[in-house]
Design a protein around this nucleic acid. Structure first.
Ligand SMILES: [Mn+2]
Ligand SMILES: [Mn+2]
Ligand SMILES: [Zn+2]
Ligand SMILES: [Zn+2]
Lengths: 143, 143
DNA sequence: AAATGAAAATCAACTTAGTTGCAAATATCA
DNA sequence: TGATATTTGCAACTAAGTTGATTTTCATTT
């Protein structure tokens, strides 16, 4: 999705060393049009080289803490990850409850929701996640 | 939250036997102003009687399938449950990333989101979940 | 009241996704 | 080169939930 980002430079800007594995994680996510599970990222990297899952989990975690990735709590019991670079502003997601895929939707409606939800609370809102669940285009055709 | 519902009657209407445990699960959720984890429901029941966790998980699962409860994928790796009766229409949720509590927000803005998100897809949207993340009122005071 | 049968609850074992602690391998710097 | 710090790997563990088989409960039928 984002071959627009120069990953080595992105990491350099944050003082993070661009190791082969860190770049591999970013490239897998950059090449995907949808948010991926840690498992899927792991397998994608493994199709090219050998990696330990712990390393991948640690990279995903570190990137999420630094704001390089967003971790989505979109599905029970499995996190999904996506790039959080400027080409990927926060946006709603769609998950098909038949095939499980997580699509990215257009960011547009987010701004308005912010205003509606932020107001009425003594809480401080830092982030808003919108998840649409249903049956995707492909799965509808089949059945 | 919903002492408004007559649980035995609710179950009867669906042809589900109102066993002691099923009612206990509904009463715990009915007495709570926030969505609860399976663990919390289990502990609440255990403070009164002895139960096996499998039974509680199966009850939660059955209720969710029948639409008596909603299962919320609001936090990584832990489901939250809430009553889905007419006094609890679907609504956005707020989770504090300090204390982890999941508050229920007002249902109002949901209708509008539907229209915005349903349209642009070949997908069929069945449900929309909105999750606001931040720091809750209580946790803000403390720090 | 005893026998039958179905639904509900329990138990032990298992699974999945992720985490922890520590050791080995690399990279960086003096 | 050696000393230090960072990254990666390995094995063991955890938390949340699931599975399959067994036992209990409870309403019917005899
Ligand atoms: Mn996305
Ligand atoms: Mn709620
Ligand atoms: Zn699908
Ligand atoms: Zn809080």
């Amino acid at each position: 999705m984002s071959d627009l980002c120069d990953f080595p430079q992105l990491l350099a800007g944050l003082g993070v060393k661009p190791t082969a594995l860190r770049l591999a994680v970013l490239e897998v996510l950059g090449a995907s049009s949808k948010a991926l599970r840690a498992q899927e990222i792991l397998e994608a990297i493994r199709s090219k080289r050998r990696v330990n899952k712990v390393t991948v989990y640690r990279i995903l975690d570190g990137f999420t803490r630094r704001g390089i990735l967003r971790r989505l709590a979109i599905e029970d019991r499995v996190s999904h990850y996506e790039l959080a670079c400027e080409h990927h502003p926060p946006h709603p997601h769609f998950q098909c409850h038949n095939c499980g895929q997580v699509q990215c939707l257009e960011p547009a409606p987010l701004e308005r929701m912010w205003r509606d939800l932020k107001g009425p609370l003594g809480n401080r809102a830092d982030r808003i996640d919108i998840r649409v669940e249903g049956v995707c285009h492909k799965c509808r055709e089949i059945s």
